[in-house]
């Protein structure tokens, strides 16, 4: 049962970069849209920096081991086209399976900016953790921006861990919402939900598939520490709104 002050997301916005890691994010976004019974909007952002780079005369990319390839506007365009087709196909299959209405667009610009721009009050955002580069501060700074509009943000790991517990970190602010979402995910996945405190989460050693918590809890645990713990488990994280108050932040 959802707490009375929690409103279900109206839409799910899936933000994809031009990298190849899209299947897991699509699966997660589709599953979320199916769970809450809403439509899915996929934004595959064509990064402006890359487009500009491709127009420069010395645009070269260095791959693993130092392999060099030239970046051209045509090559980049072809890459975007290819990625968009792959995304469309994956979306079509996943949404057909789960009976979810979907749309896909390919705006140009900066990924986070484009997602934020598309968000409306009450939407949920799904994106790859890899899209939010940098340390805990950078990642949760971006999440904070998204949650200023969105109801929830889902960060998807690059490697799937399908087996494991659904863990709700439930002793902090917005705990009721996190637990309710965790239970909804647990019911859908057919796994038991573990409700743990933040210290217990630190010591939790069983496999974890999904972590549900609030941004406020993350801020309490420490953004870097939480990110480290999260990447160690390989779990997907669902973050709901709820921030530390200014006195709380100062206290911390």
């Amino acid at each position: 049962m959802m707490p009375a002050d929690y409103s279900r997301p109206r839409r799910v916005i899936l933000g994809l970069g031009a990298g190849g890691d899209m299947v897991l994010a699509i699966e997660a976004a589709t599953a979320l849209a199916a769970t809450i019974g809403t439509e899915l909007l996929c934004l595959m952002v064509e990064q402006e920096d890359l487009i500009n780079l491709a127009g420069l005369p010395f645009a070269q990319a260095y791959g693993p081991g130092g392999a060099v390839s030239t970046i051209t506007a045509r090559g980049l365009e072809a890459h975007f086209d290819r990625m968009f087709k792959v995304a469309e196909r994956a979306l079509a299959e996943a949404c057909a399976r789960t009976n979810v209405n979907w749309q896909a667009r390919r705006p140009q610009g900066e990924t986070l900016h484009q997602i934020t721009a598309s968000l409306e009050q009450g939407d949920a955002a799904v994106l790859n953790l890899r899209e939010l580069r940098g340390g805990g501060h950078a990642v949760f700074g971006a999440v904070r921006r998204l949650l200023s509009v969105a109801t929830a943000v889902v960060l998807v790991p690059s490697a799937k861990r399908s087996a494991g517990a659904v863990v709700a970190i439930g002793d902090g602010p917005a705990a009721a919402v996190a637990i309710a979402i965790a239970e909804e995910i647990g019911t859908r996945m057919g796994v038991r939900v573990e409700v743990v405190s933040a210290p217990e989460f630190e010591l939790f050693h069983r496999p974890i598939a999904t972590v549900v918590t609030s941004l406020k809890t993350v801020e309490r645990m420490g953004e870097d520490e939480f990110l480290n713990r999260l990447t160690g488990t390989g779990a997907m994280v669902v973050l709901v709104a709820g921030r530390l108050t200014e006195p709380e932040r100062r206290l911390r």
């Binding site: 500009n52 260095y62 791959g63 990625m83």
Partner: peptide, 24 residues
Amino acid sequence: ILRTPMGFALAPLSGGQVVKPEVF
């Protein structure tokens, strides 16, 4: 330093953004 689908690339920056070709 930019991360591209093909690997890492180097590009001139202006205001934290890659310089547009026409500017360059």
